[in-house]
Simulated scan of single mutants.
Amino acid sequence: MGIPALGITFLPAFAPEQLREVATAAEGAGLDELWLWEDCFRHGGLVTASSALAWTDDIKVGVGLLPVPLRNVGVTAMELASLHRLFPGRVIAGIGHGVQHWMGQVGVKAASPMTLLGEYDSVLRDLLAGEEVTFDGEYLHIDAVKLNWPPEGRVPLLVGGEGPRSLGFAARRGDGVLLTAGLGEDEVAAACDLIRAEAADVGRTMPPVVVPLITAIGPDAAERVAAEVVRWGKSDRDDVGVSGDAETIAATIARLAEMGVTSVAIQPTEDEPDLPGLCRFLGERVRPILSGSARSGR
C-alpha cells in the first residue's frame, strides 16, 4: 500500500479571509494538498486558488470542482493556463456537472449534463494543449480559438462525478477522479471498483482518485461528525467520516488507500474551531503513522 497524498479542505462555509492562515498552516504542517470548492454562491474557486498559491511556496492547490455549465470554456482555459504558468506543478483542477439546482438558479442548467461535460472536457483539453479549436456541438460553439499563453507541458485535468455514468466518464477520460463528499467507506470502495473496471475497459490503468473525508478531533469530535453527516443526508449510515485520535484517523485513511484512493482531502466539520490546529495535527500526528505503516508493509 502506498501512502496517499494528505490534504485539507477549506470549505466554502468558512469566510474567505480565513484562507491565508489555513493555507500557510497547511504548508507549514507539511501537508501535500489544499483543496478548495467552487460552491454557489460562496467562493470563486480559481480566485481562492490563485490567492492560496501566491501565499505559499510548495503545497499543491486543488479545485474540486469547476462546474462546467457555470463557466465559459474559453475563460476557464485562460485562467487555468495562467495559473499553471505562474505556479507550475502546483495546480490541480477538476471539472464536473455542478449541483443541478444551483445551475438552474443561475439559468445555465443543461438538459443533458453528460453531453455538455463531454464537449467541455474535449474542448478544454485541446485549448490547454495549445491547439487552435473550432467546435460546433450541442452546447459549445468555438470558432478558431487558440490561447496566446498556453501552459508549458501537458496539464492534467481531473473529472468529478457521483453516479455511475459520470464516474465511468471520469475513469475513461480524466487524469484523475474526484469523488463527492459525504461518502461511506463501502460507497468509496464501490466507486473505486467501478472506476477500475471502466478504465480497464478502455485499456487504461486506474487513474488517481481523490476523496474528501469528514474528520473531527477533540472531546466533542464524534458529535460534530455525526451532525455533519446529517447535513450531508447520511444520518442512517455509520461509515461516513471519522473522529478520534491520530491512530483512528490514520487507520481510516489506510483503508481508503487499500481501496484505490490516492489522495485524501480531510474535510473539517463546518463548526471546526481551529483549522490551523487541525492542519498541524494531521501533519505532526497522522502523517508519521501513515509513513510507519507503509514502511512496515501494513
Rank of each mutant, 00 (worst) to 15 (best):
G7K: 08
I8F: 12
F14W: 03
E27M: 00
D39W: 13
C40H: 15
H43M: 02
T56S: 05
V63K: 12
G64Y: 15
L65N: 10
T76V: 11
A77K: 09
M78Q: 04
G89Q: 07
V91Y: 04
I95D: 10
G96A: 03
M103A: 14
P113H: 09
M114D: 09
L117E: 01
E119I: 04
R125Q: 11
R125M: 11
L128Y: 00
L128N: 00
V133Q: 09
L140M: 06
D143A: 14
L147K: 03
L147R: 04
W149E: 11
V155W: 04
V155Y: 06
E162R: 10
R165K: 15
R165D: 06
A170H: 01
E187T: 11
A191T: 06
L194C: 08
A200R: 11
V202Y: 04
P208E: 02
L213R: 01
A221I: 02
A222S: 15
E223H: 12
A226I: 14
R231D: 06
W232E: 02
D245N: 15
A246H: 05
E247L: 10
I249G: 04
T252H: 15
A254S: 14
R255K: 15
T262H: 12
Q267F: 09
G277R: 02
L278N: 01
C279I: 05
F281N: 10
G283C: 10
P288K: 09
S291A: 15
R295Q: 14
G297N: 11
